[in-house]
């Protein structure tokens, strides 16, 4: 497995760049992963990333996009729980990019 070094500590990622150990995650690593994805993190990005981490903690899976959209809509409002908003934040897909930055595995249902 490839290793990456962030703030003087090294972490294992898989061949697609997803963090191997969920427990390794911290803000520095999220910043590094975001950089790799060419995403500039704003408060709105963090809100989604933190939402995903809470979702994972509660259900032990990374949600599929439409499930994420629905769940965000319920918690943060319909103006955020829609594809347009989420794809503007994460152009290559909220499931793929936001999950990666949140340190979660690839969403279940990914082929």
């Amino acid at each position: 497995m490839p290793m990456v070094e962030v703030a003087g500590k090294s972490f294992e990622v898989d061949e697609e760049g997803y963090l191997t150990n969920l427990a390794d995650w911290n803000q520095d690593i999220a910043g590094y992963l975001a950089q790799e994805e060419k995403v500039e993190m704003t408060d709105s990005h963090w809100e989604v990333v933190n939402f995903l981490r809470e979702y994972y903690d509660e259900y032990q899976i990374a949600p599929a996009v439409r499930v994420l959209t629905k769940a965000i809509s319920k918690k943060l409002g319909a103006d955020k729980g829609n594809n347009k908003y989420l794809y503007e934040l994460f152009p290559y897909g909220p499931a793929k990019q936001a999950c990666k930055i949140a340190g979660l595995p690839k969403p279940t249902g990914c082929i």
Binding site: A64, P107, I111
Partner: peptide, 10 residues
């Protein structure tokens, strides 16, 4: 990718 599968639904 699930993003892709979501496009296939409906």
């Amino acid at each position: 990718m699930s993003d892709m599968m979501d496009d296939m639904e409906g």
